[in-house]
Structures are given as structure tokens and as C-alpha cells.
Amino acid sequence: MITLPEQLEKLSKQENLIAQGAESLVYSAQHPYLPQQECIVKYRPKKPYRLPELDAQLSKHRTLAEARVLQKLALGDVEVPHLVFIDAKNGLIYMEKIEGLSVKQWIWNEEGDTEGGAQEAGDKSRSLPDGDVSSLKDTLVLVGQEIGKLHKSDIVHGDLTTSNVMLRDGKPVIIDFGLASVSTLAEDKAVDLYVMERAVLSTHPVHSQQYCDWLFEGYLAVVGKSQKEVMRKLEDVRQRGRKRSMLG
């Protein structure tokens, strides 16, 4: 087998780059043990804008946390990529490749907004295309259920957006656990939901309320008895957001 830094050098060619996230580069790669199987490598490069001490600490912590969470979830019923291999020192994680679109892109396609919501202006009053409503609803309810299962496993994602849920054969798979952590606290789960709500509002502004309703419908269907406390906290977090004094 080739050593990892060498491997990375071979990988890090532009043609292998699948995505440039906020803090990681995702390359398609060969599985380290099963050469016929395709997988991806998530690499956290050094961030020269921040202090080396802080950067090293964050990269190591997040790579480890992501791997731990993926490993924990591998035994449960939440759909996440399989963890293949980790090299925390070099900030590398090998994992299963999920084929499909992100929910963000899929919704934009469904809405007929191919160039991307945040970059394009459109008419404000457009209604949802009739034929697509049921597939949008079904999918978002499923996404909500997946998030519910995640919280039921006491995992908080930390960055729930429609970019971080993929659709594989129409079934949602949650990805990118770089900011994830283990928590049983209703407060942490509520902040997770608040982040999701805000991301939907900004990314899919025209029908955000409807989309959130569907997500929560799915979420509430699976979380069970812990839901009361989480939803109550969510109300608190929303208030905090709204009340924030806005001077300046």
C-alpha cells in the first residue's frame, strides 16, 4: 500500500476534486484495501489565515470528531457514509462515496431554478409547480426523519443545511460531520434545528416556510418523547435570535 502523504499527492489533482467545502477538499479516490471500490477522501488543508496553533488544534479535533461520529452512527439506522480509514495527523478521512445530488441542488432543480438560488434573482410570487409538490414533500419529510433519527442517537450535526444532505436513489444521506458532536442536551439539538431552519430560509427563500413545516413533520414523527423539551428550547433559541439587540 502507498503511504498517505504520497497518496494525497497523487490524489490532489484538479481532476479528482469533487468539492471544495468551507474547510475541506473532497477528492475521489481508490479504496485503500479494495481497489475495485470507489471512495472519497476528505482532506482538511492547513488554513493559513488562522494561527498555526489554533489551526492544528481545530483540524485534528474535527477530523477525529467526524470519524468518531461516523463510527458511532455506522451501527445505527441513520443513513451516513461508511467510514473507511482515518489519518487524523494529516487531516485525512476516507469514506464511502455517495452518488447523487445534494438536497439543495435537487430542490433548485425541482423549482426550475438551475443557476442557484442565492446567485439569481427571480420573481417573488411564484408558486410551487403542482406536479412536484408531492415529491418535494415526500423527500423533505424523509430528510426530517433522518435528522430525527440522528438526534435520537444523541448526535448533533453542527451544520445542518440542504448542502449537507445528499439524495441517493431518492433517500436522504446526511454528510459532513466536521462540526458534529455527541450531546444529549435539548439545547444543543435545538440550536441544530435553528441552524437548519435559518439555512432553509436563506437558501430556499420563496417556499422556506412550507419546506420547514415538512422537515419538522418528519422530525417530530421519529423523535418521540424527547421532542417536547427540544421544541421548547427551539422556541427559546428563536427568541434569542430575534431579540438580539441590533445596534451598530
Partner: peptide
Amino acid sequence: SGGNTQVIAYSKQRYRIFGETLDIAVG
């Protein structure tokens, strides 16, 4: 600023807030 910390992008005739502080502002 002293009272605001927001990450904003324009979309469909509004400045949409993508990220912001959950409590106090950076200033």
C-alpha cells in the same frame, strides 16, 4: 459591528441572512 454580526448574500430582491451571531455581536 458593535451590534451586528451577519453573513449576508443577495437573492431574489432581498439581502438574505445566511449566518449570524446567536447571542452578542463581535464589536
